[in-house]
């Protein structure tokens, strides 16, 4: 009896497993699924979890990755509005949003993602060149617009691509788009280099001349200031001397009391000052105090004889 119960439990258990294998399937977080009944798309499942199905042969489950795919197109040449040849390459992030639409178009191929990207590349190609043709080069590169035009161009291409993809009902959606490369044709780079070299030469010369001019300016400015300082100092010195004379003038008033004596004293001082030392004085007997010698017999009388 005990043995029978055990067998029954086991068989029920196996039956359940068998049922689940036949009638259910799992959808993972990163997947979307389209279920076909006799090859015709019947329903799509975009939510993860355990789902029901009819057994193999009646209903088939097709799984797709619903995560964002990265795709980058090849460099393509396009003329800007002002006829510059620009090479551009863009990248996009896209994902499958509607597997029911996606399935019939791309699932026949062994690699549906690559197939979808081929279609996407064609769309990108012509939308991109259409947008590039609408803008002059100055919208792509400009020192004044702070890059707003660059972003606007990216946005414009994205909108155009999104519209076309939606209109075509591919079952996919472009999430974001940006410019990956922006280049010039190879032969043009040579011209750019020549122009850059010429500009550099101009800059180097300018810097040289400016340096010399500035240095000269600093020097002459310094000389001017030095001369000014000296002139000011001389002025100040004269002023100080003037002050001295003004102060002395007070004392000079004293001499007015007796000009004769004053003159005499000054003359004596002058005499004192001039005949300090190492001087030679030649005088006759009229000079004081040698007037005392007048009339005195000397040997001088003999010199002439």
């Amino acid at each position: 009896m005990k043995r029978k119960t055990f067998t029954i439990i086991i068989s029920i258990f196996l039956g359940i497993i068998f049922f689940f294998l036949l009638f259910t399937f799992q959808v993972r977080q990163q997947e979307v699924v389209v279920v076909t009944r006799f090859g015709k798309p019947d329903r799509q499942i975009t939510e993860p979890g355990l789902k029901f199905r009819l057994p193999w042969g009646i209903e088939m489950v097709h799984r797709f990755d619903q995560r964002v795919q990265n795709f980058e197109d090849k460099l393509t040449e396009g003329l800007s509005r002002d006829s510059y040849n620009l090479l551009t390459s863009v990248y996009v992030g896209w994902k499958i949003t509607n597997p029911t639409n996606f399935f019939p178009r791309f699932a026949g191929n062994p690699n549906p993602i690559a197939e979808a990207e081929k279609v996407l590349e064609r769309t990108l190609g012509h939308q991109k060149s259409a947008v590039v043709g609408k803008h002059p080069l100055s919208d792509f590169v400009s020192a004044t617009d702070k890059g707003t035009n660059f972003i606007a161009i990216e946005q414009e291409i994205l909108t155009a691509v999104q519209n076309e993809v939606r209109a075509q009902n591919y079952g996919l959606e472009v999430e974001f788009l940006g410019i990956k490369k922006l280049q010039l044709p190879e032969s043009v780079t040579q011209n750019v280099f020549d122009r850059m070299t010429a500009e550099r030469k101009l800059l180097a010369d300018k810097s040289q001349f400016e340096g010399e001019a500035d240095a000269q300016k600093i020097r002459s400015d310094a000389n001017r200031r030095a001369a000014e300082m000296l002139a000011n100092a001389e002025g100040r010195a004269t002023e100080i001397k003037g002050q001295g004379e003004a102060q002395a003038a007070k004392s000079l008033a004293v001499f007015q009391q007796n000009p004769e004596l004053a003159t005499f004293v000054f003359r004596l001082d002058a005499l004192d000052a001039t005949l300090k030392d190492r001087s030679t004085l030649i005088f006759d007997q009229h000079t004081e105090p040698f007037s005392l010698l007048r009339g005195t017999p000397t040997n001088l009388g003999n010199i002439k004889k």
Binding site: D277, S279, L281
Partner: peptide, 20 residues
């Protein structure tokens, strides 16, 4: 004063020549 000064001056003077 004159004589006093002359005396002092003449002491300082190196060469003194009297030409009577």
């Amino acid at each position: 004063r004159l004589i006093g000064t002359m005396g002092r001056v003449l002491t300082n003077v190196q060469d003194k020549i009297l030409v009577p």
